[in-house]
Structure formats: C-alpha cells, structure tokens
Amino acid sequence: MATLDINGKVVDVEAAPDTPLLWVLRDHLGMTGTKFGCGMALCGACTVHLDGVPTRSCITPLAALAGKKITTIEGVNGKVAEAVQAAWDHIDVPQCGYCQSGQVLAATALLTKNPKPSDADIDTAMSGNLCRCGTYQRIRAAIHDAAKSLEA
C-alpha cells in the first residue's frame, strides 16, 4: 500500500509499485480529469504537478511518489490557475477538450514560474503538449491574457 498526497488530501492506494500515476488516478481513484494520450511522455495529456513541477503522470510510477505533493486538474487552484481557467473561458480555447487538462496545468506551471512569458517562452513550455484539434493559437492568446490579468 502506498500513501499519496493528492490535491492536499492523504490517499491510500493499493496498486503494483510500477503502476503509473496516471492509472492510479484514473483507475484506482476514479479521477478521470487527467487524460491518457500516449503513455510515453510524448503528448502531455496526462500532465499533473509534482511539487509544482509539470510532470507526465503516464511515465511516473507509484513507487516514485513518496513525499511528493501531487496536484491534478481536479485540485489545481490559487490565483494563477484561476486566471488561466478564466482566460480559457474568455477565449473559448477548447475544441474537443481532451488535451485541455494537460494544457491548463502546463500553462499554470509556466505562469507561476514566469508571470510574463514571451512567445518563445510559451513555445518552450507548451511544446510538449499536443493538441490534435489545433487550439494552439488560442492557448497562446489565453496565456498572454492570463498574464495580463495577473499583472492587474
């Protein structure tokens, strides 16, 4: 049995130690906001924060999580996350929406570290997150929009 800190709550999980965090969340805990896209750290759909750092949960085994603070789309909150989600709403970023949990968490991590990212910063921070629907232009606009609202 492993004990995890997920969204500020202590959670016990019974799963094989090599089970990726993604499946611990989705399957064992029924938290389906974090998505499965590739299983190889290639798409970013499964992005969560580990101690605030955007991390691909599909390649992060349960055994590596002791003592880490895990934040998922269900629990992400605070000024930056709220600004990001408000910008997402305002600009109507999502299309199918499947990649968007990962995009929101990646964008929140970026703006937390870098409150005024340039386009090049956005390229660097967001290029690991695929959007098959092609919402990239709106993601970029929404990140700038959120940065502006955080400044105010």
């Binding site: 389906t32 109507d92 970023v93 999502p94 929101v104």
Partner: peptide, 13 residues
Amino acid sequence: TPAKARGKAIFGI
C-alpha cells in the same frame, strides 16, 4: 468550455 477547461467533461474513456 468551463467543463473542458476544468477536466470535467466526460469522454468515453
């Protein structure tokens, strides 16, 4: 949009 930006939309998976 709000559901999709908050991981609340339910897909088949």
